[in-house]
Design a protein around this nucleic acid. Structure first.
Length: 431
RNA sequence: GCCGGCGUAGCUCAGCUGGUGGAGCGCCGGGCUGUUAACCCGGGGGUCGGUGGUUCGAAUCCACCCGCCGGCGCCA
């Protein structure tokens, strides 16, 4: 490796240590014979001071002309000095240019969102985006760890599919060697197939939605964490969801404390500590009606309704037993009340809304056919999915969680696209 | 898809009762040995989103189109 030390490491070295750092020139302040460089790498920023006469002939003048984001290699001595940011700086002895910026770096303070998105490939170098991506990684790591500890097997499902999960018009259609195919919007059906051998499965992969939804909580491509569990009923599922959710929040708090501080986010894991409040759809309707909303049985909640509802809670909360007409055909009708299904959404407090959706699936062959017909769909289109109910079908439940939605809530991000490296929205497929 | 907003220098914007396009920042040149995305002096930089129309004359008025932003519906 060309690089052995990182900014984070150098900041911890004792006074007088010699160190060599490779990084990028985040900014530069010139004072004639004295030059300050803020050197950036994946772990942070350190000030480098360069004095004329203390570096080899000619290199001072050369470095003084370097543009922002030039890549450099600096060797020097660690100096603890209260005048430096964080009280530490690197006094330069020699400096080498690795990759010079050929042009003025276009990203700086005060730039508006359109330009930042057009230049996302450069913007992602910012400490803020860097911190969010580290938190995202910590979140996924915590999820995998929880699944691992609880006996789940990670599976990978196809992105090219032929049938919709819910038969909507929200699929991206594509040409598959002359045949019509689509990009997946959920791995649920494949997971349901997998439980007959692996029993408890999960997957983390992109889902695609061709919805022209211009909101701060929609992407056309998002990372979908999904799980499916054999022999699990709704109650079992809710426990899985809240335990996993808590483990993910806890994991971020433990592993990304520095990044949370950098973002100015105060995240208390106790806000996600189970058990979560549970209300039924019928109860949610009551609350909304009390607040003056005109909501009828069977209506799904709009953004305003969801926001108002979420103000009633401090913790994430479940809304269970939705009206069967408002949800997809595969949800299990509740034998105790056939007007509703044994399903649940997990909503986050503070108006951030739905992050998880799931429930118990219909496992009876004839009942599923009946529900497919009721939904105005053709059972022929769901042949292999129906097959799963023909051979040793068992009760099972599953859910899907939007990774970016969870980050959006957890970090109080202004927009869900802030939770991904290269967000995809109806208006953006570049860079 | 619906409603609203915006598009002028590299960036952020002013200019909009029609009369030869401006500022701040950045950039370039010069100065400065303790700055905190420093400071001081000087300089270059434009198909005013596009097309058409009204007019002696359009960044400015009108029509259409394109692009993006914000919100709604839909959802994770």
């Amino acid at each position: 490796m060309l690089k052995k030390l990182y900014v984070e490491d150098v900041k911890k070295l004792p006074e007088g240590s010699e160190a060599t750092l490779l990084g990028w020139v985040r900014s530069k302040r010139s004072h004639g014979g004295l030059l300050f460089i803020d050197l950036r790498d994946s772990t942070g920023i350190i000030q480098v001071t360069i004095r004329r006469g203390e570096v080899p002939d000619g290199s001072f003048e050369y470095v003084a002309r370097l543009r922002r984001e030039s890549a450099i290699k600096v060797s020097g001595v660690v100096k603890h000095d209260p005048r430096a940011p964080d009280g530490v700086e690197l006094r330069c002895r020699s400096i080498e240019v690795i990759g010079e910026s050929l042009d003025d770096f276009p990203i700086r303070k005060g730039i508006k969102i359109k330009f930042l998105l057009d230049n996302r490939h450069l913007h992602i170098r910012s400490p803020r985006v860097t911190a969010i991506m580290k938190i995202r990684a910590a979140l996924l790591k915590a999820a995998r760890r929880w699944f691992e500890e609880n006996g789940f097997i990670e599976i990978n499902c196809p992105s090219f599919i032929t049938a919709a999960v819910e038969g909507g018009a929200t699929l991206f259609k594509l040409d598959y060697f002359g045949r019509e195919a689509y990009l997946t919007q959920s791995s649920q059906f494949y997971q349901e197939a997998a439980i007959y051998s692996l029993e408890k499965v999960y997957s983390i992969q992109p889902s695609f939605r061709a919805e022209l939804s211009r909101t701060r909580r929609h992407l056309t491509e998002f990372w979908h964490l999904e799980a499916e569990i054999a022999y699990a009923e709704l109650e079992d599922l809710l426990e899985v969801i809240e335990n996993l959710f808590y483990a993910m929040v806890e994991g971020v708090c433990e592993q990304a404390e520095k990044e949370l501080n950098l973002l100015g986010v105060k995240l208390d894991p106790d806000v996600a500590k189970p058990p979560y409040p549970r209300i039924t759809y019928a109860e949610a309707l009551e609350i909304l009606r009390r607040k003056g909303f005109d909501v009828k049985w069977g209506d799904d909640f709009g953004a305003d309704e969801e926001r108002e509802l979420s103000k009633e809670f401090e913790k994430p909360f479940f809304v269970t037993h939705w009206a069967r007409e408002s949800k997809a055909f595969y949800h299990m009708p509740d034998p105790a009340d056939p007007r509703v299904c044994k399903n649940a959404d997990l909503l986050t407090p503070g108006g951030y809304g739905e992050v998880v959706g799931g429930g118990q699936r219909i496992h009876d062959y004839n009942q599923l056919i009946e529900r497919i017909r009721e939904a105005g769909l053709n059972p022929e289109d769901y042949k292999w999915y129906l097959d799963l109910r023909k051979y040793g079908s068992v009760p099972h439940s599953g859910f899907g969680l939007g990774i970016e939605r969870m980050l959006w809530w957890m970090l109080k991000l202004p927009h869900i696209r802030d939770a991904c490296l290269f967000p995809r929205t109806p208006a953006r497929v570049y860079p």
